[in-house]
Amino acid sequence: MIQLENIRVDFAVRGQSVLAVDDVSLAIERGEVFGIVGASGAGKSTLLRVINLLERPTAGRVRVAGEDITDLRGGELRRARQKIGMIFQHFNLMQNRTVYDNAAYALRVAGKSKAEIARRVPEILRLVGLEDKAQAYPAQLSGGQKQRVGIARAVANHPEVLLCDEPTSALDLETSAAILDLLKEINARLGITIVLISHEMAVIKKICTRVAVMEGGHVVEQGEAYDIFATPQHPFTRQLVEHTLNLELPPHLVDDRQGTILKVLFLGDKAEEGVLSTASIRHGVAVNILHGKIEYIGHRAVGLLVVLLTDSPDAPAGLPFPLRLQAALSYIGSQASHVEVLHD
């Protein structure tokens, strides 16, 4: 659906050239929800704006729906943009126009007939759940409602692609979730390809099928959202994922420990308790779960447990604790997807 090839964007900031996006290539499939995640200043917002040429790349090609739009100008570019919807972090609604007029904007720009606009606008306002707010002004709406108007405006003209620039960053947690659900619904019901950028892994995790991770103008890692989340490769991605999982232990648990603290990752259908209890019984170690989380991405689970292994008072006589611990570790290691010793 969207092919970005060797995109490079240079900015001139106070006479100095800044490289915002450096040789990025992405292929986004029809109908998917593609996420671009990164810290602020990573170039993700610039990259998103390259797709509808709000930002013209210094080098590289942009193809949308099979058409190379890189060199389009004037009327041709405007017609191409009419097939690409966009929503914004700060909604960017016209303050002096009603919800109805804001939602109708893209249709009017595309030169639709009055009758068609009068038919389409109520339909699209119903889709975003604002049919009763048609005559309200943006100032009378909550943040979430404003973003719904933004979404209505963006999808009114049946675009093939919807670009989302930090769509939930100005919203509270609950409203964010509702907006993401709406985007997901729009993706599923209307089949619109969505490209979404965010600095929050949690947003990506909730709706994206595939993800690209950006740092310093580069895409450092890309793949299925599940894989990125479950087995991040690049240090920056790992940091992002860890930040989202937030498996931090209170310091006293670490300081007063009498054993080994492990982080154990289970993917898919692995029976977590089974592995740990077998290890406990078979090797005579006590397993204490200190922290744990199971995240669902799409319909697949990522289980993360932080456990403490200590000497069990019921251990059979014979092998000393360090050897039994070693055996337990290697058993868990062979069963779980990933094991990391946090503290010896």
Binding site: N52, L54, R78, M86, F88, M94, A106, V109, R153, L163
Partner: peptide
């Protein structure tokens, strides 16, 4: 006038004259 609103209009394929008439003027 919020430059974001102008950017949104550009993103929807609005011509410069139309941006003046339908965004800048009313806002």
């Amino acid at each position: 006038v919020d430059p974001g609103v102008v950017e949104a209009a550009e993103a929807f394929g609005t011509s410069p004259l139309r941006i003046i008439a339908t965004v800048l003027f009313p806002e």
